[in-house]
Every structure is written in C-alpha cells, then in structure tokens.
Nucleic acid binder design. Structure first.
Length: 168
DNA sequence: ACGATGATGAAC
DNA sequence: TTCATCATCGTA
C-alpha cells in the first residue's frame, strides 16, 4: 500500500483498511491477515487521541509522515499497532484492532510478534510488516461503525462512531 | 460482572 | 512522586 493511501482523512483510511491485508514476514514466512476492525484517532481536538495534549516523545510519530507505524505499550503489557494517516503535521492514526481470526489489539500484536521494533518504521516489506490491498471488495453496507473502546475519559468524543468493523 | 495485572508517559 | 492508561485474563 502506497503512502498516498494513508495521506488522506483518517476516517476514510480507517474504513478502507477493512478488507485489506496486514502482512507479516516472520522467520522467512509471509502470513496475511484480513483486517476486520479499526479505530480512527483524529487530530489535536480528539480527546481520545494521544495527540490531543500536544506533541510528546511518545506520540511524535503521529505528527510525521503518513504510512508509518505507531506502536506503544498500554496498561504495562499490551502493544497497540497504529498506522499514521493524513498530511504530515496533522496528528492522526488508525488503530488496527482486529484481523480475521484474531480479535483484540493486544492479541493481534502478540500473535504477529509486533512490539517496539516497528515503532516509527514505515509500513513496508523491508521491515517485514506492511499492508496489501488484495482487491477484496468491501461495500459500505458491510461496514458497521460504533463508539471506540476504552476511552471513557474522552468526554464528547466518547460517542463518536470512529470504530469500524466488518459485519459477518 | 469485576478486580488484578503492570510499564511507561505525563501531570502534579 | 503520583496518577492514569486506545486491554486481557482469571475468578465469580
């Protein structure tokens, strides 16, 4: 997937990632997983986003170029995999919450051996983790949107339908 | 349904 | 130094 795919509004990218494949090369083998669940984190004003308090050492990659991974540890034990979206300078990213056969963002990173190695790296074959469009058609009616998970503190942003799931 | 878990960033 | 967290698992 090219950088221009990610250099678009976060909500659009979060939707369109559904049905795409997250591909991992590990010990010489490639495994592709269809993305089934995403969440959008959109700009300075989004109180659920790490970026809303401004740029920090941790979230700085969100302010950079689109198509890069933002991986961080939450609750002291689970890595979350995000891909930076939008124009450079605008802090936004899509959290990959689930793929076919694996639900939950923490389980996903554990299963695909994703940790800080991928943080601040571009989604590219060179680092063994990237996204492919395999021409799987996903129509808008097959997509469900709901409120995001685990962001009770985000006030008026709690209810925003920024979580996208492929219906079964 | 609920509490324990637990490392790190960011605020106080 | 203290608080809170983009979750999961175990025990009910």
């Amino acid at each position: 997937m090219r950088e221009n795919f990610f250099k678009r509004p976060t909500l659009v990218v979060a939707r369109e990632l559904l049905g795409c494949y997250l591909v991992r090369r590990w010990h010489g083998k490639e495994m592709g997983y269809m993305i089934t669940e995403t969440e959008a984190y959109n700009g300075f004003n989004d109180k659920a986003s790490h970026a809303h308090r401004g740029k920090t050492k941790r979230n700085s990659v969100m302010f950079g170029r689109p198509g890069y991974f933002y991986v961080y540890l939450t609750y002291g034990m689970h890595y979350m995999l995000n891909i930076v979206t939008g124009e450079e300078g605008f802090p936004a990213a899509v959290l990959i919450r689930g793929v076919n056969g694996i639900s939950g963002p923490g389980r996903l990173t554990k299963a695909l051996h994703i940790a800080k190695y991928q943080n601040k790296k571009p989604a590219d074959k060179k680092i063994g983790l990237w996204v492919e469009d395999r021409e799987v058609a996903v129509s808008p009616r097959e997509i469900e949107s709901t409120a995001r998970v685990g962001i009770h503190y985000a006030e008026e942003w709690v209810e925003k339908p920024y979580r996208f799931l492929l219906k079964k």
